[in-house]
Write a protein that binds this DNA or RNA. Sequence first.
DNA 1: CGGCATCCACATGGATACTG
DNA 2: CAGTATCCATGTGGATGCCG
Lengths: 124, 124
Amino acid sequence: MSDSPEKLSVWCAGEEWCPITTTASLIGKKWHPVIIHRLLDNGPSGFNELKENVDGISSKVLSDSLEDLQEKGLVDREVINEQPFRVNYSLTEHGESLESVITEMAAWGQTYLQEPTEADEPTE
Amino acid sequence: MSDSPEKLSVWCAGEEWCPITTTASLIGKKWHPVIIHRLLDNGPSGFNELKENVDGISSKVLSDSLEDLQEKGLVDREVINEQPFRVNYSLTEHGESLESVITEMAAWGQTYLQEPTEADEPTE
DNA sequence: CGGCATCCACATGGATACTG
DNA sequence: CAGTATCCATGTGGATGCCG
């Protein structure tokens, strides 16, 4: 885990390649940061275990997100049992390397955000 | 700028409020991190100046994103001249406080990502 | 210059049901 | 348990044109 993995080649939206745009394309999806956060926190997890921890996600969206994260090389999927069928989702080296980013996001949220009260509820 | 602003009340997707989910909802849009990054880097900017710096964005999307960021209390808009018409977009205190997150994202991208070559181009 | 209006394509997300 | 299938609503992004 300590030896840095080779760099990921990732495309980027704009004309010229930009680290932050590209990073945003990796984790700038609604559920990706949370999924990675849960995997960092709880370690390798099964599908439904992850679904419980990522509060409010549907199986389809979790399935789609995990597939996306696998394609991006951040998450690993391993079948650990056939009967009963069990899989294990874990972070790759790249996925784990995101800890600093995820931690920073969580810390920022802790510091600068608060849970809204009923009074804040948008009446719109 | 040094006194920490009051916390933002932001809704979150899941059942229970979660800092990282909520943070992700603030900056987990395709262009938001880049826009904030550019404002951090170049300071307050006009609309087209920002459009140039955020490489590849259309005016509609930039307009939408800026509106979203204003609603979320991260960006300020100020009309600084009527004739010729000029506005200035800048970061609020909350927006500036995101520097650590944005920096971490950019640093991660620098370390773990590389610009893909033609060979990596998806033929799909 | 700094947008908004319009239109449209596609992506994303959610609910529900069903399968091996 | 670990998904897939389906359907549908909404979101997001891009192109173009126009306006004060």
